[in-house]
Amino acid sequence: MIDQPGCGMTSPMGSDDAYLVCLNLRNQSTHELWCDGRSVCSTSYEGGTTYVLDLRRDPIAYISDPLHSLYFYMPRQAIGEACEDLGKTNIVDLALQPGQCFRDAIVNSIGQTLLPIFNRASATNQALIDHLLQGLCTYMASTYGGSSKRPEVVRGALAPWQQRLVAQMMRERTFEGISINELAEACGLSAGALARGFKKSTGMSPHQWLLSHRVDQALELMADPDVSLADIAFNTGFSDQSHFSRVFTQKMGVAPGAWRKSLANNKRVEAA
């Protein structure tokens, strides 16, 4: 649960052989999701909807509004075992598009049932939680089990591990930046092949991706009204406030000052 707006990009969620089933408890005006370094979803969603993340695909999300959600961790092995119990063999995937929001009364009912139980820790309640979670896994397997539709490898694009590595290296060097040659060497490619492959994979050049990530870092800092825009520009690696303002406006559609003012107005409304 995140009560403050403007949290920005999530940290990498790992690369487990599992899914996260996400039950949204409140509306989100912006729902941006990246998998394998590529944007796969950009929309809003309503409270009471569900979506599924495949953790094998390095999902990263952008969070703009306060976030109230329940996340259910489901190993693919558990989904496969549930399908076998149902007489469905060779099924270990959930056949849902990444970020695809849908309404499911069963998922929502189980989530709403679990909410008050989580606040009352006891051995009896833990047994009930385990029972409900096992039932949810069986339900997801029986209703959505199938061959997941993973995107075909795009000719000339980077391999998923290369996309993850490049993105991680750029995150670690957000402030000072990193050269194409360093990224290319880490991936075993020439600089030209790296640049072409990254753009083919993500739709952006490495430099554009880094600027976008700097804006995401700036969004987190802008939640503090005592930090000046000039300091935010400096601390996120922009050459000056003017450069920061141009890039921010291109990405977010409004100037940094207007964005910060809207944050302040939202806080006043919530406090009223």
Score class of each variant (00 low, 15 high):
residue 55 L to S: 01
residue 56 R to M: 00
residue 58 D to R: 12
residue 82 A to W: 05
residue 91 I to A: 01
residue 69 S to T: 13
residue 84 E to P: 02
residue 63 I to R: 07
residue 72 F to V: 03
residue 48 G to I: 13
residue 66 P to E: 08
residue 72 F to H: 05
residue 84 E to S: 09
residue 81 E to C: 10
residue 56 R to F: 00
residue 76 R to G: 05
residue 73 Y to R: 03
residue 74 M to I: 07
residue 53 L to A: 06
residue 58 D to Y: 14
residue 84 E to N: 07
residue 59 P to F: 02
residue 81 E to R: 13
residue 90 N to Q: 15
residue 50 T to L: 02
residue 83 C to T: 06
residue 80 G to C: 08
residue 68 H to N: 12
residue 77 Q to M: 07
residue 55 L to M: 01
residue 59 P to C: 02
residue 79 I to F: 03
residue 61 A to I: 07
residue 79 I to Y: 02
residue 64 S to E: 05
residue 82 A to P: 12
residue 79 I to H: 02
residue 69 S to N: 11
residue 51 Y to T: 07
residue 88 K to N: 13
residue 67 L to V: 12
residue 78 A to W: 11
residue 50 T to M: 04
residue 90 N to R: 15
residue 85 D to I: 10
residue 63 I to F: 03
residue 88 K to G: 08
residue 75 P to I: 02
residue 56 R to S: 00
residue 77 Q to A: 11
residue 84 E to C: 08
residue 49 T to Y: 10
residue 53 L to P: 05
residue 71 Y to L: 09
residue 88 K to C: 10
residue 89 T to V: 13
residue 60 I to A: 00
residue 72 F to P: 02
residue 86 L to V: 14
residue 85 D to A: 13
residue 69 S to I: 12
residue 79 I to N: 01
residue 75 P to C: 01
residue 86 L to A: 15
residue 49 T to E: 08
residue 59 P to M: 01
residue 49 T to M: 11
residue 91 I to E: 04
residue 84 E to A: 11
residue 77 Q to K: 09
residue 55 L to P: 01
residue 80 G to S: 06
residue 77 Q to N: 10
residue 52 V to D: 03
residue 75 P to L: 00
residue 69 S to K: 14
residue 51 Y to I: 07
residue 72 F to K: 03
residue 65 D to L: 12
residue 67 L to Q: 09
residue 59 P to D: 02
residue 75 P to W: 00
residue 51 Y to R: 09
residue 52 V to F: 04
residue 80 G to A: 06
residue 51 Y to E: 04
residue 78 A to Q: 14
residue 50 T to I: 07
residue 48 G to D: 10
residue 68 H to Y: 12
residue 57 R to F: 12
residue 89 T to R: 12
residue 82 A to H: 08
residue 80 G to D: 10
residue 57 R to A: 14
residue 70 L to P: 00
residue 67 L to D: 06
residue 50 T to Q: 06
residue 54 D to I: 04
residue 53 L to H: 04
residue 74 M to H: 05
residue 87 G to E: 09
residue 50 T to W: 03
residue 50 T to N: 06
residue 87 G to H: 12
residue 72 F to Q: 05
residue 50 T to Y: 04
residue 76 R to W: 02
residue 50 T to E: 03
residue 69 S to V: 13
residue 60 I to Q: 02
residue 61 A to S: 06
residue 64 S to T: 05
residue 66 P to D: 08
residue 84 E to H: 10
residue 59 P to N: 04
residue 59 P to G: 03
residue 59 P to Q: 02
residue 69 S to Y: 09
residue 82 A to L: 11
residue 58 D to S: 15
residue 73 Y to M: 04
residue 67 L to Y: 09
residue 60 I to H: 00
residue 48 G to R: 14
residue 84 E to L: 11
residue 49 T to K: 08
residue 90 N to H: 15
residue 54 D to Y: 09
residue 76 R to H: 05
residue 73 Y to L: 08
residue 82 A to Y: 06
residue 62 Y to C: 13
residue 52 V to C: 06
residue 73 Y to F: 11
residue 86 L to H: 15
residue 89 T to N: 11
residue 90 N to M: 15
residue 79 I to R: 00
residue 74 M to W: 05
residue 54 D to N: 14
